[in-house]
Amino acid sequence: MIIQALTFYLFALTAIAAGVMVISARNPVHSVLFLILAFFNSAGLFVLIGAEFIAMILVIVYVGAVAVLFLFVVMMLDINFSELREGFLQYLPIGALVGIILAAELILIFGGWVINPDAAQIIAAPSAAPSEITNTHALGRLIYTQYIYLFQASGLVLLIAMIGAIVLTLRSRPSVRRQRIAEQVSRPVEDVIEIKDVPTGSGI
């Protein structure tokens, strides 16, 4: 359908333009905002291919949580913009190298599919395309039955990363006075407050 094609080009072009702006915007906060725009358009592309669950998760996780923290950090940093510009040429060769390698790999993959059409058939198709269930159900069945061990292993990796982050940042400072909630809650009521029965409209 023509509308689907038009929306695809709209989302794709906006995503690419936003991606270019991420690396070319002068202000880092603008870069993060363009990054968010790029995430949004990728979510739109996912919706177009019928993967609405992944689209929503992309928005919730990346836009709703990760990018907020990103923005948070970038706003707090005191960045010297002109200094940032100077480093651009210095890093250009490395960046270009990474880009060229990625492009070459993509060309190899897609070129392989063109040369040998059978190769495209053997790409991962873990289960038949579900027709009667929603893709949330399909994903759930796949992840929690067929790939449960890999799923658990990735969970463990995340857990370890989380513990590592906590260990790295947690420092106990004995000099800081802390609120002891349990002590406060366990105080007897009569020591702390006095309840007065105030008639309405007259005050104490």
């Binding site: 609405e52 669950f53 929503m56 919730i60 836009v63 709703g64 949330t136």
Partner: peptide, 11 residues
């Protein structure tokens, strides 16, 4: 009436 309505609202 989308399939992932609640996720959309959460997003």
């Amino acid at each position: 009436d989308i399939n992932v309505g609640i996720l959309y609202l959460f997003a």
